[in-house]
Nucleic acid binder design. Structure first.
Lengths: 160, 160
DNA sequence: AGGAAGTAGTTGCGTTTGCAACGAAGAACG
DNA sequence: CGTTCTTCGTTGCAAACGCAACTACTTCCT
């Protein structure tokens, strides 16, 4: 009985996915032609670089949660557009370091107002303390899920 | 000054997007070959239909937040796989109604345990009342953003 | 030191995606 | 009624995506 009791609307899986996409698409609409040609993968890469410049390409793969090839080609395009540069890491020549150009850094100042406006409207009238708790929960989930991605299920650490 | 003060990690835009994608990809890994060939768009469609069967194709377009064409082709594939059926709505022959087949309904019972397990691990040790508040905030955002999508900025309702 | 194993990034291929142009069905106006 | 306007779904096309095979470089092991 009650086999259909589960409602996606009560699920953080559903909610985070939909709200995330709705916010992104709303911001994208606001930005309009300022972000012409910048796909979601590009935006994901940029956000990471805004937090920390000079990341390795591999860092972006795991952070943005897209395929190696997808990131490689996204970076290729971003480089063509003059938004990032790629430099071989001389300390370990397998790695490439990704750096923002001035144009790439400037995109942050372009996007930020739109993002803030979008958030403001979506959160209008909600108690700030509840919003803060929501963020805290999501931050913890983010941290945990990311760690799991890095160290997926230690199989048997008991063997000699 | 402090022009770089803004940190994406403090932003619900970033958090919802990343957590949503991390959860989805984690669930997908758990489900493994049970969902072979089911892309994220397919899953999005299914989740909506699990909530309410017989939706119009257009409802799915706005709810899943993908292009008309993308949804059309996703449904084409799902129909080929015997997961949904499409029927012209005789009341308004422009619309098509989408119905789950038994196989489509059964997929819910296949996916649900994986989703619950994934959530459980991601939320482990967090105070339930904080998780509840997080959900509440996200639900309100979802509702508001969805409404905005349906009624985008009433331009000038004052004219005769 | 030298070969095996592992890691980072690139490339080819088939599928999916978003955009725009299109066709069919209904609604709104005279 | 008939014309125009709007809405819903389909299709062509170029770009992006995920997967898997491949190359370049490093580390580990004997």
């Amino acid at each position: 009985m009650a086999e259909h009791a589960y409602n996606p609307l009560d699920s953080l899986v559903f909610l985070t996915n939909r709200v995330g996409r709705l916010l992104s698409s709303d911001i994208r609409k606001r930005a309009g032609n300022e972000v012409e040609g910048l796909y979601s993968t590009h935006m994901g890469v940029l956000v990471d670089l805004w937090m920390q410049d000079g990341l390795r390409q591999q860092d972006l793969v795991s952070s943005v949660i897209k395929d190696k090839g997808t990131i490689a080609r996204a970076l290729e395009n971003l480089e063509k557009e003059g938004i990032v540069t790629r430099e071989t890491d001389e300390a370990d020549r397998r790695n490439k370091r990704i750096y923002l150009t001035p144009k790439g850094r400037n995109l942050k100042t372009v996007m930020l107002p739109h993002a803030l406006k979008s958030m403001d409207e979506a959160l209008e009238g909600m108690p700030p303390e509840e919003v803060a708790i929501c963020k805290k929960v999501l931050q913890r989930m983010y941290k945990r899920l990311t760690q799991k991605l890095m160290h997926p299920v230690p199989a048997n650490t008991t063997s000699p």
